[in-house]
């Protein structure tokens, strides 16, 4: 008679006390990027990326669009970031 091959193995759940750290700057950037004018700047930047990557012989770069987007985004973040830091 075969022994019962089913063996119950106890499962230990990992402790959840170490939670994921959230950077307030990253959170604020996501929140600010959802704003109207910053979202449109981001879309403009993405359009430029697609346009330039779609052509093989262009000398165009998307530096200006990125600069406009980053400047507006971080300016929005700067209003309240340091109040969330220690």
């Amino acid at each position: 008679m075969a022994f019962n091959s089913r063996v119950l193995v106890p499962v230990l759940k990992a402790d959840d006390d170490e939670k994921e750290l959230v950077d307030p700057q990253a959170a604020l950037r996501e929140k600010c990027q959802a704003k109207g004018h910053i979202a449109s700047l981001y879309n403009k930047y993405q359009e430029c990326n697609d346009r330039v990557n779609g052509k093989s012989k262009t000398t165009e770069t998307c530096m200006e669009e990125l600069f406009d987007f980053v400047a507006e985004l971080d300016h929005c973040v700067a209003h309240s970031l340091f109040s969330k830091l220690k």
Binding site: Y45, N49, N53, T58, T61, C62, M63, E65, L66, V70
Partner: peptide, 20 residues
């Protein structure tokens, strides 16, 4: 805190990163 992917059309040499 400002590191970002390089925009299209910008070529970075080896060992370089993009920061606006």
């Amino acid at each position: 805190t400002g590191y970002h992917d390089a925009p299209a059309g910008v070529v970075l040499r080896e060992g370089q990163y993009f920061n606006p």
